[in-house]
């Protein structure tokens, strides 16, 4: 049994079908990448899984429990927490306060919450910023704040929605290291990402969406060689470059 099971999820907005009969599983302890061109329905699927949308049809199982209609805060309490593609800092609160909100999920004890928060802030390299107002942070820090805050809730499944978009290559490397660190801590990850080099190096499995439909699922090397994925998303040139890099570190 996978930690998260997505069964035939369809999400319609009026006549627009954003997700069409999507199914896949996220194994405990793994990193699953969700990729696809813009408008493929990745964020919509994220919203369905994290409880912000109720799928039109289909079923979601988390830890074997039917969570299809649970609201977002219940999902977070169960241990499935997401970050937002467009960063949502709690602007008029400090970085520490932001992370504390997450940390309070596992208990009302203030000292304990501070302990958790400091830990997560350190893990995401935000120590120097902890007293700053979140609204005034540079984007790279805001992205890491999203991650630190979600992490503070003590999730079993962490869903990162384009946590690396808009970052510099150094920042991306740092983010990849953070993700690897999270995996070592036993956290399962579902990651929406456009930066192929980054996702190739961390994902155990990649699910590809196009036009709301799942067109491929499998290990990264397999997926990048898939003809349909190349046509829909990667493009032939890119695919060749990735193949050339095979065996070496795909980030270089």
């Amino acid at each position: 049994m996978a930690l998260l099971e997505v069964h035939n999820v369809t999400m319609k907005f009026g006549s627009l079908v954003a997700n069409d009969d999507v199914s896949f599983g996220v194994e405990k302890g793994s990193v699953v990448g969700l990729i696809g061109p813009n408008g493929a329905g990745k964020t919509t699927l994220f919203n369905c899984i994290s409880g912000f949308y109720r799928p039109t049809s289909g079923k979601l199982l988390f830890k074997g429990q039917d969570v299809t209609n649970l609201p977002a805060y219940e999902m977070a309490r169960l241990g499935a927490v997401r970050t937002f593609q467009v960063v949502h800092p709690l602007k008029e609160m400090t970085v520490l306060d932001n992370v504390l909100v997450g940390a309070f999920l596992r208990g009302a004890d203030t000292d304990k919450a501070h302990e958790i928060a400091r830990d997560c802030i350190a893990l995401c390299h935000l120590e120097d910023m902890s007293g700053r107002m979140a609204g005034g942070l540079p984007i790279g820090y805001k992205k890491r704040l999203e991650m630190a805050r979600a992490l503070a809730t003590g999730p079993e499944l962490l869903m990162l929605d384009e946590a690396m978009a808009g970052l510099t290559s150094t920042e991306i490397k740092a983010a990849v290291e953070i993700i690897k660190g999270l995996q070592k801590r036993g956290i399962t990850l579902l990651v929406v990402e456009h930066i192929m080099e980054a996702i190739m190096s961390v994902a155990d499995k990649i699910v590809v969406l196009d036009g709301g439909i799942k067109i491929a699922e499998g290990p990264p090397q397999e997926v990048v060689n898939d003809e349909r994925v190349i046509t829909a998303y990667l493009g032939a040139k890119f695919s060749q470059r990735l193949k050339a890099a095979q065996g070496g570190d795909p980030r270089e």
Partner: peptide, 9 residues
């Protein structure tokens, strides 16, 4: 941010 708060439980 109500949405953010809910995403954090």
């Amino acid at each position: 941010g109500q949405e953010t708060a809910e995403s954090l439980g």
